[in-house]
Write a protein that binds this DNA or RNA. Structure first.
Lengths: 259, 259
DNA sequence: GCATTTCACCTTGCATGCAAGCTGGAATGG
DNA sequence: CCATTCCAGCTTGCATGCAAGGTGAAATGC
């Protein structure tokens, strides 16, 4: 199980030469995270965002293997920034650096997903508690956003628009952590949430319609609005537990072939 | 607040030349983390551990400022591994890289500690829940360790041995996360726990005797042993909340002068 | 004496160069 | 035909070289 290469062997990276470097020079990213933190923070950041995005969007599927050299050439930079970006990606579990063999895009096993969901349950629960604890602060805008997302989800459910549902769902969870005010929770969730996104997007059309999701979100919003800390945390945790209980069996069934 | 240098200006790093490099070559670390993960994983890992330890033990106090060059020389390596180690330390909040000024060891403000404790509350609660959920697995050794630590704490409290209490307390919390089986929770807690250790050690003799700690730990152990998931999680969270409520006022009083 | 300008130095960021080591396959012996 | 040995090449890890860009202080003008 150690020396075996994944199903997907070496393959060309699907970009033109210097794609990221040129985009970064003009101040825009291919499709960075929703909140653009800073304009251009250097090539290592560019490489990191590009690679992370490529993995999450499955342009670099699990089992993909390449050398720093190739990636650096494709990105129009030297090996150094790619090397540092890879170190970050390895710490976050996206890739594995095989000592003298190259870089391997890791698969997401059901066990990984269970771990990720445990973290999400705990951290989003904490975020909900924090929001509820300061229900009187200037978070009315956050609360309005949460309510709007919940309404959008309910609406999308009525029209069976799963993609719209997914967008609204992601917006809800983004707002939940964005508004909680704890930057560490924010960053930690951002680290693990990407991986769950990948799995959720792939299984979106495989699982039963998330008919309870809007109700559960509404319960979270109500608890936050009323300032009930314990209820908010428990509602958020229950919501993620529920989602996990639906997702994991499906992943086991498709046997993580192309995660 | 931006251009001001901290109270501590540039100072020599208190080591001999090549300290870490030579130690790493022989396969031992100055004082790495309790669980030695791998033998020698390269200079960047050596630099990371050394610097992290130096910051946590206050050899590099907050406000300390230096260039990669100096540190690299002191550690007997080139700038490259130091640079990568610094990137990691910055992501974890230990230092701040001032674009063209040098590396600044960050202070730990009360706000930071609040954030850290929120994370600890959430993640250790999850760990306790996980342990309780598989109360019948082969975790009897973990449970025994937890019970032993709790007993040691009670004993240390009776003899007013605060240092022994701290050791037992840290062992308890280490076991709690080590036994939970979720590697991501483990790593995330390890990341933030170091910072809380720094604060707790500094305030150890300033806060009221932790007379309730043994009782609270016992409640966690009992809930895990009986497999009561919700009770275990809530007990762990309550314990950390309690600790936080004692710690934060003290930090505000001493006004984070030398954190 | 104070504000302003300038300039040399120091710092990081990245490219490139170099070495060690493992891999995989080819060549060889049985 | 199979096992064994050896070797060449490719890989990462780290050192060093180079350039862009601020910083801070000294020098200068008012």
């Amino acid at each position: 199980m150690s020396g075996r290469k994944g199903a997907a062997t070496k393959r060309q990276v699907a970009t033109q030469t210097g794609k990221v470097a040129r985009a970064a020079a003009e101040g825009r990213m291919p499709s960075g995270s929703p909140e653009s933190e800073q304009a251009s923070e250097g090539r290592v950041e560019a490489a990191y965002r590009y690679l992370r995005n490529a993995i999450l969007s499955n342009d670099l599927p699990a089992g993909f293997q390449a050398a720093e050299n190739e990636i650096a050439t494709q990105l129009g930079m030297s090996r150094t920034p790619v090397h540092e970006a890879m170190a970050r990606l390895q710490e976050e579990g996206f890739v594995q650096i095989l000592p003298r063999k190259g870089i391997l895009v890791r698969a997401l096993t059901p066990a990984d997903l269970l771990e990720i969901y445990d973290v999400l349950i705990a951290l989003e629960g904490a975020a909900a508690e924090l929001l509820a604890a300061e229900a009187d602060r200037a978070l009315s805008s956050t609360l309005a956003e949460l309510q709007a997302s919940t309404d959008a989800m309910a609406s999308a459910l009525r029209t069976d628009d799963l993609d719209a549902w997914r967008v609204a769902d992601e917006r809800f969870h983004d707002m939940l952590v964005a508004g909680c005010g704890n930057s560490r929770i924010k960053r930690m969730i951002a680290t693990v949430a990407g991986q769950s996104h990948r799995a959720r997007r792939l299984t979106l059309h495989l699982r039963p319609a998330p008919i309870n999701s809007a109700t559960e979100h509404q319960a979270i919003v109500d608890a936050i609005r009323s300032g009930d800390v314990a209820a908010a945390g428990e509602a958020a945790r229950a919501h993620r537990r529920h989602a996990r209980s639906q997702l994991v069996p499906i992943l086991k069934r498709i046997n993580f072939r192309q995660l």
